[in-house]
Simulated assay, not measured.
Amino acid sequence: MEIGEVIKMFIKNRKMSQADVAKAIGKSTTALSQIINGVYKPQSDTLEELSRVLKVPVPVLHFLSIDEESVPEENRQLFRALAPSMERYMLDVFNTEPTDLELKKAH
């Protein structure tokens, strides 16, 4: 899953509009939309602002955007074993519905 999809999930679950989030992070709605749609990767300062506004640590955003193909082959078995429970835990801690996140890590 791309980081933009994870950001979109948190925006939705926080019941915020993209316009409100964009304003809060000092970006245009177009810029935020491009991040969400994967046109651009967010810069570290933008990711920090998104993290602050969405109340989710940056490492959680990164973890939820990892898929099995991005994990080195020698670590994939461990990833498959740990990722689903870690993902559910993170979503619970940050009050996000897992139904909004495609569980690619479990496949």
Rank of each mutant, 00 (worst) to 15 (best):
L47E: 07
M9G: 11
L54E: 04
S85H: 12
H62N: 10
V21C: 12
I36S: 12
K12E: 09
G4A: 10
L82C: 05
E97A: 07
A83Y: 09
I35S: 13
M9H: 01
I7A: 10
I3T: 08
V60P: 08
M1D: 04
V93T: 07
P84I: 03
E102G: 01
E102Y: 02
D100Y: 01
K104R: 11
V58D: 08
T99R: 06
T99G: 06
V93N: 02
K8W: 00
I35R: 14
K104M: 01
E97W: 00
I35Y: 15
E68H: 03
V93P: 00
V93L: 08
P98M: 10
I66T: 05
L91F: 06
Y40F: 07
K41P: 00
F63I: 10
S51V: 03
A31R: 11
V58T: 14
D20P: 00
V93E: 07
I25Q: 08
M9S: 07
Y40V: 05
A31D: 07
M16D: 08
G38M: 09
T99Q: 14
K8P: 03
D92N: 10
A24V: 08
F94Y: 14
S44D: 12
M16V: 07
D20R: 07
N95C: 02
F63A: 06
R76V: 01
I7D: 07
M16E: 07
I35K: 15
D45Y: 13
A22S: 15
L101Y: 05
P59C: 09
R14Y: 05
L103P: 05
R52I: 13
L61M: 14
L82Y: 03
T96A: 14
V71H: 03
E87A: 15
D92K: 11
I7H: 10
A31K: 03
F10C: 02
I66K: 00
D45K: 15
N13E: 15
R88G: 00
D67K: 10
V56C: 07
R76T: 02
V56D: 05
T96I: 06
V6P: 02
E73H: 04
E2R: 14
E102F: 01
G26D: 09
M1E: 05
T30W: 04
K12T: 12
K55C: 11
V53M: 06
K23Q: 15
I7W: 00
I7S: 09
V58H: 00
M9T: 11
T30C: 05
V21Q: 09
D45S: 15
V71P: 06
E73F: 04
S85P: 00
K41R: 09
T96L: 08
E68G: 02
G38N: 04
A31S: 12
E102M: 04
R14D: 03
D20C: 02
F94E: 01
V60N: 11
N75A: 03
P59K: 06
K27L: 13
I25F: 08
R88F: 04
K105N: 05
K105W: 00
T46S: 15
K104C: 00
L78V: 09
T29A: 09
V58R: 02
R52C: 09
T30N: 09
N13S: 04
A19D: 15
Q43T: 11
